[in-house]
């Protein structure tokens, strides 16, 4: 079974993870329909190093991992603060 070497919890079988796609910046406020549709439906799929959301079920925690999608190598765990953004409130 494939393993993900996840910094912090060590190598783990991939079945313990749930993949949640690439880390993407928030959509611009009041984006046009075209911009929004592009953001919602399109992904580049190009090979390279991606920042991705990985959820480890047994520990119930999220990780942002930089993964080379060509070699499948996990390069590092990104500090969540690096990807966090504030949301506006009423």
């Amino acid at each position: 079974m494939k393993h993900i070497d996840c910094p912090g919890i060590g190598p783990r079988p991939i079945v313990e993870f749930i993949y949640d796609g690439e880390v993407r910046p928030p959509a611009p406020e009041d984006a046009s329909l075209e911009v929004l549709a592009d953001r919602v439906f399109n992904r580049s799929g190009a090979p390279g190093v991606l920042r991705e959301w990985w959820y480890h079920r047994p520990t119930g925690s999220w990780y942002v991992l930089e993964r080379d999608t060509v070699t499948n190598e996990i390069q590092r765990a990104v500090d969540p603060e690096e990807v966090a953004y504030a949301i506006p409130m009423l």
């Binding site: 749930i18 949640d20 959301w53 959820y55 119930g60 925690s61 999220w62 942002v64 969540p80 603060e81 990807v83 966090a84 953004y85 504030a86 949301i87």
Partner: peptide, 13 residues
């Protein structure tokens, strides 16, 4: 739902 909430907590700091 729990997973989504947890992710939002991280994502929104």
């Amino acid at each position: 739902t729990a997973r989504t909430l947890k992710r939002h907590a991280v994502e929104w700091g």
